[in-house]
């Protein structure tokens, strides 16, 4: 797809934030135009990476569940192992988000269990995953 969507969004951000916004009277309209431009800048960042981030997160959680499921055992262990065996149906972002939400709900349950049983290895892996996932999803903005 050319011009590439992220390029279009970046150029449109520049048009709105640097040309159209400043041409409006100061106040709500001008501020909203600038903020709208910034939204496009952020969506441009997300466009290329959205599927990649979610595929990697889902794979990391499934790997974690495969290891933790055996150690945890019981009903939760079975759910973890079942989830570890799932796959993303496709790489549409909405599909990946749906799976991501289900996996994260299970991750919360595993985290609570690990804290309750003082399972430090599992807890450390979860916290490291959360840190890495949060870092990957950050959006960066230029100073304005």
């Amino acid at each position: 797809m050319k011009p590439s969507p992220d390029l279009v969004l970046n150029h449109t951000f520049a048009k709105i934030a640097m040309e159209m916004g400043p041409a409006l009277p100061a106040g709500y309209g001008q501020g909203s135009a600038t903020t709208t431009g910034v939204l496009l800048l952020m969506v441009a960042q997300e466009f290329n990476r959205a599927a990649d981030i979610r595929v990697k997160e889902n794979a990391a959680m499934r790997a974690l569940f495969a290891d933790a499921g055996v150690a945890v055992g019981g009903e939760l262990g079975q759910r973890l192992l079942a989830a570890a065996g799932t796959q993303d149906a496709d790489v549409n972002v909405a599909t990946l988000d749906h799976a991501n939400a289900e996996l994260k709900a299970l991750l919360i349950a595993l985290h609570i269990e690990a804290e309750k049983n003082d399972a430090r290895d599992i807890e450390a892996r979860i916290v490291a995953f959360l840190r890495d996932a949060a870092a990957a999803r950050q959006v960066f903005l230029p100073a304005m």
Partner: peptide, 19 residues
């Protein structure tokens, strides 16, 4: 803007604090 920029920002900050 709050959902796209601020939410991931504080999510990361909290995750760093947990670590």
């Amino acid at each position: 803007f709050s959902g796209l920029y601020c939410l991931p920002f504080h999510n990361k900050r909290l995750a760093d604090m947990l670590v």
